[in-house]
């Protein structure tokens, strides 16, 4: 029997017996000593999830969250040595976790919180200076073919639930139960400087930025915005891009990579 295989299996399965071959100097039952390892492993992984998903935790309470996180840890033990990203599969797990079904927006709240962690650690990129952007935008003939490259931290979440309002209520210590959760909301998550911003967006604006992130040129991205009901305000969408310093490069060539403009 491979000692480590047995040890590892017992760590992540509470029903698994204490591994064979363990001893204690005083002849005491090694199972209670082994339990220290099992507890350390599970508690540190659950604590890490609690750090990543504070609003998800606050929504369902500490006991429910920890029980759910334990199930996640057993079902999806980390496959990477980078603990910061163990939460990547958590939202999908929450979505399928039957006891949480009565809080149908919980999975999207978790998605929002994971995107914030991803944005915090995302690659660095210098925003283009406003003057450089203004110069390019000054030539209306070229505008439709431009590709605006967004900051690597930028992400869009479009939810059937009011996840941005719910998340914000938790930040401001307002009563989240005053929020109507059944309103679809779109959220932009982006790091400006060293702070991660979580910004509510009109759905059309979110579709526009999502298209930019896919590498669409401006004309196609604007079309994506206009295809969303409720009206698309290109000037407002641009104001968001500039205010959040999201544009890090503009590609003006047909292939998207030629004639790049950088700082």
């Amino acid at each position: 029997m491979n000692t480590q295989a047995d040890f590892a299996a017992a760590l992540l399965d509470p029903a698994h017996p204490c591994p064979a071959g363990l001893v204690a100097w005083n002849g005491s039952d090694p199972a209670s000593r082994f339990a220290v390892y099992r507890n350390n492993v599970v508690v540190s992984l659950v604590d890490a999830l609690a750090d990543t998903f504070p609003v998800t935790l606050a929504t369902v309470g500490d006991a429910f969250f920890r029980a759910m996180a334990r199930e996640f840890v057993f079902a999806h033990p980390p496959r990477s040595p980078l603990l910061s990203f163990h939460g990547r599969g958590f939202a999908d797990f929450v979505a399928a976790f039957a006891p949480a079904a009565c809080v149908p927006w919980l999975a999207d709240l978790a998605r929002l919180e994971m995107l914030r962690v991803e944005a915090y650690h995302a690659a660095d990129a210098e925003p283009l200076p406003a003057a450089a952007i203004a110069a390019l935008l000054a030539d209306p003939g070229r505008l439709p073919g431009l590709r605006l490259r967004c900051h690597p931290s930028a992400a869009i979440l479009r939810s059937s639930w009011a996840v941005h309002s719910l998340w914000e209520a938790h930040q401001d210590d307002r009563d989240p139960s005053a929020v109507d959760p059944c309103r679809p909301e779109a959220v932009l998550i982006v790091r400006s400087g060293f702070e991660v911003a979580t910004v509510g967006l009109p759905h059309a604006g979110a579709a526009f930025i999502a298209a930019l992130k896919r590498g669409e040129h401006l004309a196609a991205a604007a079309q994506a915005g206009q295809s969303v009901d409720g009206g698309f305000d290109l000037a407002l969408a641009f104001a968001t891009l500039l205010h959040r310093q999201m544009i890090v490069a503009i590609d003006s060539g047909p292939g998207g990579q030629d004639n790049e403009l950088h700082t």
Binding site: T3, Q4, A5, F7, A8, L11, L12, G21, Y37, N40, V41, S44, L45, A48, P77, P78, R79, S80, P81, L83
Partner: peptide
Amino acid sequence: AWASHGGVFLYDLLPLP
């Protein structure tokens, strides 16, 4: 110590014989 087995990372420093 060991900290992973079979591609699973345990985030603990585990003992070896």
